[in-house]
Amino acid sequence: MKVDWSTFWPRIIEATGETITMVILTLIFASIIGVVMGLLLFVSRKGNILENKIISISLNVLINVIRPIPFIIFLVAISPLTRMIMGTTIGTFAAVFPMTIAASFAIARVVENNLISIDPGIIEASKAMGASPFQIIFGVLIPEALGPLILGLTFITVGLIDFSAMAGTVGGGGLGDLSMTYGYQRFDTSVMIVTVVILILLVQISQFLGNLLSRVFLRR
């Protein structure tokens, strides 16, 4: 049975809203956690401003354990934790929790990589000026890495749109849910095409915004 488009459009719009909500909320929470973790990863490295072997090794092990797990499996695996914290495992908001956890670890690595690419001489110069580690982190590391960091976060956002589609399949709602239930399982190619086109548009828009923002900070 084909869908009736006159009643189906509102559902598509609603699902698009759910997807955007999931992505934006995840991006906000995951950026906060990810940036903190990434900074910790960087400053605790050997020879860095707050060298700390224990933090460095434990964070690295944790990230390397979580990151290789396929998201769809991770989603199911941590559902007891999701239920404990969010009260439910179903719905858009519940999906934000596993997405945030998974994205945080990815962002942590992106942040670390961008910080590593800062010329160590700049950090040395800040130390020589008498800056404290705290002042170096917020006055030097973050502003210096901001341009590439925004591009990294844009890359993550595009990944999140993909995550949100998967979260949809386990009751998260959104465009992924729609394209799976109507497009894939009911063999309605037109629904699949419409949802995929919207997903592509979302990706294009986020990439455009990310490029724009990073250009402001990179000045090129």
Partner: peptide, 8 residues
């Protein structure tokens, strides 16, 4: 290598 802050 001067070590100036590129963001400033």
């Amino acid at each position: 290598s001067f070590n100036l802050f590129n963001s400033r």
